[in-house]
Simulated scan of single mutants.
Amino acid sequence: MAKSKYAPSEAKYNRWIKEGRGQGDGANYLPWLTVRDVPSDGRSHRVFGHKCQRTHQLLSDVELAVFLSLEWKADVVDIREQFPLEREDTLIIASENGIRHPSDSGVQLYMSSDFLVDSLDPQCPRYVIQAKRSEALKDPRIFEKLEIERRFWKMKQIPWFLVTEHDVSPTLVQNISWIYPLEKDDIEDEFLVDKTAYYSEVFYRNERKFVTDICKDIDRTYNLPDGSSIYEIRQLLANRCFYFDMSQPFHQLIGKDLVAENMGNLIGARHVSNQ
């Protein structure tokens, strides 16, 4: 039987290290894992981030929710996802605490944390978040691996937090469920650029008007089927052409709440992430 493309190997790890994975910061950071490196059940996301001006690799809806929360926090200055832990350290921690270290096919795995966050908060300038579905925490083996991770960051004297869907704003989760099914890689760049420019001007001229009412007005003015404009807005939001405080219900947003992205950087990142 052919070996799975997802199977670990020392050769693969050495190649990733040479590529610079898990290194850098801001726009230059390369995550240890990408959505192409792990089996997908359709819940992974490649999302452009306005703070770091690059595409982030998110492996679950919970990670997406946490990421979008961090994106809007004014004190957050850098978000590094899928951050690798030094394997030498996790092996020692596992051995000293009688925990079986994660391995596969005889290869000791590199563990990773979902987010390493840099903040302007002097009380907590750097911290780590691991995002898990609450149902996964029923698995004792998951707890063992989390304990290795927790002890690793305690050794580094960096705060570590475990977050589940219950810790995320329900409104944010609703917004994600409404917007991100329209997240597609095959939408033409020209469409995104043109529509972003068009709606940016419309929102500027109607900054105090509800976005939903703006869209209804456009549909009526141009004799479009009901919902045409709101659908285009959803497409633009899913592709990160605009961003907003995702903890706020979409139907309560007004024109000035939607902030246009730097389209040059966005389009460039789309091309890089699709290679």
Rank of each mutant, 00 (worst) to 15 (best):
M1V: 14
A7D: 15
A7M: 10
P8A: 06
S9Y: 04
A11P: 04
R21A: 05
G22Y: 00
G26M: 04
G26W: 01
W32M: 04
V38I: 14
D41A: 12
R43K: 15
G49K: 02
H50M: 09
H56T: 07
L58Y: 02
V66N: 00
L70Q: 03
K73N: 15
V76N: 05
R80D: 01
E86H: 13
I92F: 04
I93G: 00
G98W: 01
S105M: 10
V107L: 05
Q108L: 11
L116K: 07
R126C: 10
A131W: 01
K132W: 06
K138F: 07
I142L: 11
K154C: 10
K156G: 02
W160C: 05
F161C: 05
E165C: 03
D167A: 06
S169H: 02
N175P: 01
W178T: 08
E190M: 13
L192R: 02
S200N: 12
V202I: 10
F203Y: 05
D213F: 07
I214D: 00
I214M: 03
D217I: 10
D217R: 13
N223L: 14
P225S: 10
G227F: 06
I230G: 02
I230K: 05
E232C: 14
I233H: 02
R234G: 09
Q235D: 09
Q248L: 11
Q252K: 15
L258V: 07
G264F: 09
G264M: 14
H271A: 14
